[in-house]
Structures are given as structure tokens and as C-alpha cells.
Amino acid sequence: MSPVIQVRGLRYRYPDGTQALDGVDFHLDAGECVALFGANGSGKTTFVLHLNGLLDGEGSVEVCGMPVTKDTFVKVRAKVGIVFQDSDEQLFMPTVLEDVAFGPVNLGLSPQKAAERACAALEKVGAAGAIHKAPYHLSSGEKRRVALAGVLVMNPDVLVLDEPTTSLDPPGQRDLVKLLRGLPQAKLLVTHDVEFARALATRAVFFERGRVAGEGTVNEIVQRFSWSRALDE
């Protein structure tokens, strides 16, 4: 079975000269859940942006066998759903319902159909109560849920979550784990939260200065890169 995401030799340099990605090789199989670890500024978010053609670096990125180019953007973006690090950037519509329905409407669904699916998605993430609220009235945890709903509603083949647990309270994190476990999609979790990754990921990848520095189970990676906040050694 071919991987749903296949990245080879990806490099990207920001206009200001920062070499954020420096030859990344990566693959994600269907149904697999992979954790992506790495220090702040190691290029994780930059990498994620390439999976949707939002940045265009050297090297190759393939999604479900399609190379990511201008012609395939629409298809690729329907297949790979990204929940971004900053929910304020993701929730740009005036009400929660309109925001979650934004994706389906772009996919060509009728407004009614889109609203129905949006309601269902909000129900799924436990944010049905916020449906008519304005995004700026939400708590940061609620914003995360709504952002996730906005991506789930598109029913993508791959879910990419950039720091999904930040600003979620412990019960919220537990709910998120449960929710994600129940989803059949392949998942890429960009996270600093080892517990969270352990609960979900079968494989972990470690980024260092824009390269993949190591790969293995979550425990192997944590051990190899001393990736925990334990102070007593």
C-alpha cells in the first residue's frame, strides 16, 4: 500500500534567509498515527505548511500519489486537513457556524447541507453549545475544538494537528485523545506533549534544525533525545 504522504528531500528557505527545512524525508501510511517532535524553531510548522501546498520548497511532496502542485491544490487540500497552531488565525468567520461551514461551502456544498455538516462536526468535538457565538467570545480551549471541527467537517484522509493540546485543560486533552482514537484517518501530531503522543502515536519522528534526526517509537525517541521535562536525572 502506498503511503498517503510521501516527502523527499524537502528544503525551504524563508525570504529573510532562514533555512527552515534542510532536506526532510518523511512518509505517512494510511491509518497510521505519527508524532512529530522537535525543538522550537526546528521547522515543524514550516513542514506542515508544505503538506497543503501553502509553502513551496525544493524537493517533492506527494499526497495520495499526487505531487503537490498548483494544479492539484484543490484535491490535496480536500485530502489533508490541517488544524493550525494559532486558532485565532483559523477561525476567521464572524460566527462559529459560518466558520465551520466555510470548508464545506468551498467544496461546493449547498449552504444548508454545509450548515448541517457543520452542526454534526461541532457535536462531535463537543462544541455544539458555541454554535452561534462569535469566535472572539470563545475560550482558547473552545477555539481549539471549533478549529478541529472546521477541519473534520471536510472529512479529509489525513489529519494534521499542530500543537493540538496547547490551552486544552486535562479533561479536554482526554476528550481529544478519545476523539482522535475513534477517527479512521491517518494522523500527524505535531506536539511537545509526550503523554499525548504516547496515547495515540505508533511512531515518532524527531526534527532538528530542519532535518529528521531520528525515527522510532515514541519511547525510543523520548529516550534518545532526552525529550522530557523531568528535572531529576
Binding site: L54, I82, F84, D86, N106, P111, A115
Partner: peptide
Amino acid sequence: ERADGIYRAMLARGFSGRFSPLA
């Protein structure tokens, strides 16, 4: 930069240059 981020998030959700209002 926030505006850039917003635009990226819009693209990621299939924005093709047209906003369509709900009901």
C-alpha cells in the same frame, strides 16, 4: 503576519477566491 496566517488557513480549507454567504 497574522493576516498571512489567516489567508493560509483559508486556503487550507479550500478557499478559491470567493466567499459564499450561508442561508
